[in-house]
Amino acid sequence: MRLSVLVDNVALTDRYFLAEPGLSIYLEDGETRLLFDAGYSGILVPNARKMGIDLLNVEEIVLSHGHLDHTWGLDALIRLHTEAILEGQRRVPPTFVAHPDAFLTRSCDGVGEIGCHLSVEELFRHGKVLLTTGPLWLTKNLVFLGEIERRFEFEQTPPIGYVYTPDGIRDDTVVDDTALACRTPEGLVVITGCSHSGICSIVEQAREVCGDDRILDVIGGFHLLNTPPRQMRGILDYFSEVQPAALHPCHCTDLAAKIALAKVANVRETGVGLTLEYGFG
């Protein structure tokens, strides 16, 4: 598998890419091309172009959850496909994969919409839409983990605003938050969006779904911002036990959390422009 970071809060030093508070990761697994999240403003399009990545060939667009910093960049992708159709360019109609709650309206701190502002019906006009709460194998080695079982008490966090459902308004615990996992000969690579469901719970679900306890790498947002000491201790104890070969925390992970994680694991720099390759046997 080959992985490239298209959107992150920072770009790698001396790499002239655009950055923003958001996340988007491009993946190639054999002949399959996927996009995990779309960032906020659409900068994934020029960043991908500069990296030699053709987003019109992406077969599946997977959403980690419905927040704006992971979904509002879909507008730019839809414009890209629309212009390709008008110009007669070759394109692959994408399949959108997500948890069913990823398209609900959300509000927080007086902001009327912090969720995806595209509906399932609108996305259906541009490709297929596949909604699932369970794990879904996208390739022989790459799996969408589905709704994450929240296994650790120390990872329980307060709701983030409100979510508007057909049954009424409720506290938003971001139940749609999910991740990807890829099997490699050296262990699992876990690719996270924001880890609202808990980074340790996500890794545990990946180990369970894939039937492999070895963690080669975890890359993505860990949602560790001003983390309470008790939560941080639990996470550090967990990774001390799991012993991942590497961690690439980014996006919603602050410097203090990265420094703490570096005491128990091999934390590596992450940013727009980073490309990683993991082999298969």
Rank of each mutant, 00 (worst) to 15 (best):
D8L: 09
D8R: 01
D8I: 08
N9H: 11
A11T: 05
L12G: 05
D14G: 10
L18D: 13
E20G: 04
L23I: 13
I25M: 13
L27P: 00
E28N: 03
G30D: 13
R33S: 14
L35T: 02
L35H: 02
G39W: 13
G39I: 14
G39V: 13
G39C: 11
Y40I: 01
L44H: 08
K50E: 15
M51R: 05
I53R: 03
D54W: 02
L55C: 03
N57E: 15
N57D: 15
N57Y: 04
V58Y: 12
V58I: 15
L63C: 10
S64H: 11
H65V: 07
H65D: 14
H65N: 11
H67A: 10
H70D: 07
T71I: 07
W72V: 00
W72D: 01
W72C: 03
G73L: 02
L74V: 11
L77H: 02
I78V: 12
R79A: 00
L80Y: 07
L80D: 04
L80R: 05
H81P: 02
R91P: 05
R91H: 14
V92G: 03
P94D: 09
T95F: 03
F103W: 10
S107A: 14
V111R: 15
G112V: 10
I114H: 10
S119T: 15
E122V: 06
F124K: 15
F124D: 15
G127S: 10
G127C: 05
G127R: 12
T132H: 03
T133A: 04
L136W: 15
L138I: 13
T139G: 04
T139M: 09
L142H: 01
F144M: 04
L145I: 01
G146K: 07
I148P: 01
E149F: 01
E155K: 06
Q156D: 11
T157Q: 12
P158E: 13
G161D: 08
G161P: 10
Y162C: 03
V163H: 06
P166A: 11
P166C: 09
D172N: 15
V175W: 07
R183I: 03
T184C: 06
L188C: 05
V190N: 04
T192S: 15
C200A: 15
C200Q: 08
S201Y: 02
I202W: 11
Q205G: 08
A206I: 01
C210N: 02
G211T: 00
D213P: 12
D213I: 00
D217M: 03
I219E: 08
G220K: 01
H223K: 03
L224V: 07
L225G: 01
P228S: 08
P228N: 09
P229R: 06
R230S: 05
M232W: 14
R233E: 14
R233H: 09
G234F: 00
I235Y: 03
I235C: 02
V242R: 15
Q243M: 06
P244W: 14
A245Y: 07
L247N: 10
L247E: 10
P249D: 08
H251N: 09
H251V: 10
C252Q: 05
C252P: 00
T253N: 04
T253A: 01
T253Y: 08
L255Y: 14
A256P: 00
K258G: 06
I259K: 01
A260R: 12
A260C: 04
L261E: 10
L261G: 12
A262C: 06
K263M: 08
V264D: 15
N266S: 09
G271M: 03
T275A: 02
E277P: 00
E277M: 00
G279M: 05
